[in-house]
């Protein structure tokens, strides 16, 4: 069977310009894997050899990668890290809800909703514009200092509240991008069948919007997982602070490596899940369009 050059290219794809995502034959797969292995070995091997050959490496190793210090600091760092996990789970749940509410409030149209839009825009500008650390200090130390009756004075409570305050604003903007990405005809159609503005947002636009922005939301979640550690400025004994205490006590940085490993253990799976989800969505969209 003879093929014209164009048909051949169509059949195998424009190989040189766009390497295919998945190899079509085992032979190509094996060759690809070999090239990947060699180039990985050369790059990483080179870097590792360079680092290990440095005269100061033993000292750096003792300072940052000391197994004895790792074992000694890990239990403390882990116990503090559980507090981080609790914080980011509780915070994320509230951030997703509050962010959506803010985004919906901002997306409501009509002159009657003008004050609501002004408030949400003001809130988002403020919360995104202020450094997170300042927010945490301001809310964590400032609000309890007012000694208002019935208001909790816990540093942990206000630290998490500050995180929610800041992240909900970013998340609202992510949701709004999602809402804007839904074609105007969807909203029009919803209105034309008699749904109110709020109903058409809630039942028609938001479900499509959320689906579009899930990768962006997960990205924010990964970011939050590390930023919860910032409440340590309020004296809260979370994982990074425990590592910090160990470091200050022993002059050794290995405790930070212990903390880093724990943070990676939660963030990497979320990142891989995001990749997987994005891929699946792309396939779904391609299936729908073909």
């Amino acid at each position: 069977m003879t093929l014209t050059p164009i048909e051949r290219v169509e059949r195998r794809g424009p190989r040189l310009l766009w390497p295919r995502r998945s190899p079509r034959t085992h032979e190509e797969g094996a060759r690809g894997a070999l090239i990947a292995a060699i180039s990985t070995l050369v790059v990483f091997g080179g870097v590792i050899a360079l680092v290990l050959s440095s005269d100061a490496w033993p000292r750096v190793q003792r300072q940052f990668f000391d197994w004895t210090h790792f074992k000694a600091s890990f239990p403390k760092v882990l116990s503090g890290f559980w507090l981080d996990v609790e914080m980011f789970i509780i915070a994320e749940a509230l951030i997703l809800v509050i962010g959506l509410a803010v985004a919906m409030a901002r997306s409501l149209r009509g002159p009657a909703f003008f004050p609501l839009r002004i408030i949400t825009i003001g809130y988002i500008d403020l919360a995104r514009g202020l450094p997170l650390l300042l927010l945490i200090l301001l809310m964590g130390f400032g609000i309890p200092s007012l000694q208002l009756p019935g208001v909790p004075n816990s540093a942990l409570f206000w630290g998490v509240a500050a995180l929610i305050f800041s992240y909900a604003a970013y998340t609202a903007e992510v949701y709004r991008a999602g809402i804007d990405s839904v074609h105007e005809s969807q909203r029009m159609s919803a209105r034309s069948i008699g749904l109110t503005q709020t109903q058409s947002l809630w039942y028609v636009v938001v479900p499509q919007a959320v689906r579009n922005v899930i990768p962006a939301l997960l990205n924010g979640f990964v970011s939050l997982q590390k930023d919860v550690a910032l409440v340590f400025v309020l004296g809260v004994r979370e994982g990074l602070r425990e590592a910090d205490i160990y470091n200050a006590r022993t002059f050794n940085y290995t405790s930070y490596i212990a903390a880093a490993i724990l943070f990676l253990l939660v963030s990497v799976p979320v990142a891989r899940f995001t990749d997987w989800y994005t891929d699946r969505e792309r396939h779904r969209m391609q299936a729908m369009s073909s």
Partner: peptide, 21 residues
């Protein structure tokens, strides 16, 4: 109760004034 740990005296002072310690 676990002791609270601060970076600076300024932070510790704020916590003292806020009644957190």
């Amino acid at each position: 109760a676990q002791a609270a740990v601060y970076d600076t005296t300024v932070d510790a002072k704020s916590a003292l004034e806020a009644g957190q310690i």
